[in-house]
Design a binder for these strands. Structure first.
Lengths: 252, 252
DNA sequence: TCGATTTGTCCGATATTTCGGACATCGATC
DNA sequence: GATCGATGTCCGAAATATCGGACAAATCGA
């Protein structure tokens, strides 16, 4: 990433990259002075850059309280990206359809390095938002989909690939490696995976694998639902996921 | 905008802004040398910047044929933007629901300066994509929605607001100002607007206004369909648009 | 096979952008 | 009403990022 040495003079573009990554991590409009402090950028430099970026609509001044956040240009460029990647464009259709027809939150997920992340998220009809952190990296063992996304690796490869600390959940519990490997084998066998109360005590996640022609899992499509969702309802959702995943696997 | 004087030395960030705007205009992966030529940026500078941007995932090398296009980071930042703007977040739900339930392309549109643009686009079930130019500026008179978005202005204000050349369609036909003003009055009266064969001979567009508490049209929600769509089908779609627009107007 | 064109890397110089700090406003708090 | 902190602007100096051009490698075409 754009590593900006503290105290040293840096290129504007590196400062901007750090700024945007910072806003994405915070996920909330932020005051300029805070950005300067937290990214280690001189105050006068941030003001200068923010003015430029606001002019270009990359950022927007919010609320009139001196905070800035992403602007519309990011949405336009992001849409161009989505449209340009075949698999993702198709996945959009599947995810919206699943979410609309079932009424629950549906997602499309991939790996980014040794982390899992949500690429597409379509919220369901529920009031309370069960999650929606597009582009936020999460340890692989914390997720249902993660169990599918590494299912082409040997146990040794998995051990080398996933950082050891990623097996510790946010609440401090540890995921036993043997169980994790067992989950993976079982998921590959069944063609889907389901986890409950992993990151969040009251949430169940169901996922199906999207595979490339070689059979390798390159993405997953999944539902995020309350843990007390009826069993037959869950079975229906798993079937829908498998059908969507199969369409995406075929379409190449 | 980021105006980069030809021949002069420019800041990296201004070069990057020009580069991204250029890619957005082209809407296709582009070779680095072409970017250099068309944006007036020195070749060595573009290579340098592209490397930095690829590393940050703002851009992606495509195809292995030396072209670059937007990368996943743009999608993440764009999603953050969509989630952060209340009206747009709600509009997403309406647009996806309209598109899913009716099976036709639905859009959410706003003004950007004196131009119209599509903010959200959800394609219908048809094979041929009838349009989807998110974030591309279009002259107001070329669109159905445009007739709603200026309906709070007097004829004089409209004349001052819309550039004269914007009344000429891509095929050279001219839109008579009197008819345009008549359309606007009629649309405000009816609570919706419909145009056929404006930009595209075989396309009909229907739109309903989203209004702020003061009654001013701040956005529109619309369907884009083939011109030969049945009349009763169109009537049903207009009702659906009005209902969605009303929900968005109320939700403040 | 051999030029012609394109693509990508590298390097040194200098025009310029970043940076620190000073300063003026503004609001809140006591 | 005085003090403190936060916000935003401005300026000169110097560290350095941009740029032009040279060069090698790859690709193309005839």
């Amino acid at each position: 990433m754009a590593d900006v040495k503290t105290g040293a003079r840096a290129r504007g573009i590196d400062r901007v990259i750090a700024l945007m990554e910072h806003l994405h991590r915070l996920r909330t409009p932020t005051r300029i002075a805070d950005i300067a402090r937290d990214t280690g950028t001189p105050r006068s430099t941030v003001y200068e850059l923010v003015n430029t970026l606001v002019e270009a609509r990359w950022l927007e001044l919010r609320d009139g309280d001196g905070t800035v956040y992403f602007g519309p240009a990011m949405h336009y460029y992001g849409s161009d990206y989505l449209d340009s990647v075949d698999l993702i464009r198709k996945a959009r259709g599947e995810v919206t359809h699943l979410s609309e027809s079932v009424g629950e939150t549906a997602q499309f997920c991939m790996l980014d390095g040794d982390k899992y992340l949500v690429v597409l998220n379509e919220p369901g009809r529920r009031m309370f938002r069960l999650s929606s952190e597009i582009g936020i990296k999460v340890p692989i063992p914390w997720t249902a989909s993660g169990r599918l996304l590494v299912d082409h690796m040997t146990p040794q490869e998995i051990r080398a690939f996933i950082p050891a600390e990623d097996f510790t959940l946010p609440d401090g519990r540890k995921i036993v490696e043997a169980e994790f490997l067992h989950d993976i084998a079982q998921a590959r066998e069944a063609g889907f995976v389901r986890t409950t109360a992993l990151v969040d005590r009251f949430t169940t996640c169901m996922a199906a694998p999207v595979r490339d022609p070689a059979g390798r899992c390159i993405a997953t499509i999944c539902f995020v639902v309350p843990a007390d969702t009826e069993a037959d309802q869950q079975a229906m959702m798993i079937d829908a996921l498998k059908a969507s995943a199969a369409r995406l696997s075929g379409a190449r």
